[in-house]
Computed example of a mutant assay.
Amino acid sequence: MDLETLKEWFTMENIMELIEHYRSFGPIPGILLPMVEAFLPFLPLFLFVMANANAFGLWFGFLFSWIGACLGALLVFSLVRKYGQKRILNFLKRHKKVEKLMSWVEDHGFGPLFLLLCFPFTPSAVVNIVAGLSKISIAQYMLAVLTGKMVMIFTISFVGYDIKSLITQPVRTAIVAVVILILWLVGKRIEGRMNNHVSKEKQGGY
């Protein structure tokens, strides 16, 4: 089976059938599918999330998708961080565009990463790899992953579970926007505290 044939297989109906087939395993299929997407970015994360919302309900579907996506991001980040000096990844590190993106991640930290991860079609695999190669702390990156993917996955779950409500119930749409703003503000505050802590540690080390 070639890549194109594999991509064509991933439809809403096939994914729903797959989840139902392995329903006896509980939430494991719902968690594994988004987790695997972190390693294979050509897989349709938005379909996995929508299928989970339909199979498990809005809240459990969101929770399983969020756990899987965050675990996948953490695993990719950790593997790249650990083996980043190997020949293949070292080649990526020396690439000009990758180097610029790494510097950008290191300089700006949580804010832009959070926004990138809020969007469903951001190549999160690339973001995970670049973050792993950069000097950003794992705590700072996971803060962006946990909050950014929470917004993104809840939005997709919400849309997939009841797409009509976006038009018929604009109040619910406004609530999603408010949640994004709150998470942004909380994330920036936590990041500020982490940066102050790191600065104090560096000053104390001299």
Rank of each mutant, 00 (worst) to 15 (best):
R172V: 01
L71S: 08
I136M: 10
V171P: 08
L71V: 15
E99N: 15
V49Y: 00
V130Q: 01
L101D: 05
T173Y: 15
V36W: 04
M50C: 09
P170Q: 08
A177Y: 06
M152I: 02
S134Y: 06
S157C: 06
I156T: 10
N195Q: 12
P34C: 06
E37Y: 03
G187T: 00
G205L: 10
T173V: 13
S65G: 08
A51V: 11
Q85W: 11
F110C: 06
I31D: 05
P27L: 10
T168R: 09
V151T: 01
L71H: 05
L92R: 10
H108S: 04
N14R: 15
W184P: 04
F10V: 07
G30P: 09
H21V: 08
L33K: 01
L143S: 09
F114Q: 04
K96Q: 12
L185K: 13
F119M: 05
P27M: 10
S124I: 01
I15R: 02
M12W: 09
G61Y: 01
I153E: 04
F25V: 06
I163W: 09
M12A: 11
W9T: 05
D162S: 14
V178C: 08
A131F: 09
E37P: 00
A144C: 09
S199H: 13
N195E: 15
P112V: 09
S124F: 03
W9G: 09
M35I: 02
A144H: 09
L166M: 13
L40R: 06
W59C: 04
K202W: 09
F119C: 02
I67W: 11
E13K: 12
G192M: 08
C118H: 01
Q169E: 15
Q85T: 14
M35C: 04
R87G: 08
E191T: 11
V80N: 04
F48T: 03
W59P: 05
L33F: 15
S65P: 01
L166R: 03
L32Q: 03
W9F: 03
E8W: 07
E201N: 13
P170W: 09
G205W: 11
A139W: 13
L185H: 06
A131S: 12
R193V: 11
M194F: 15
I180A: 00
V127A: 02
K200E: 14
V76Y: 05
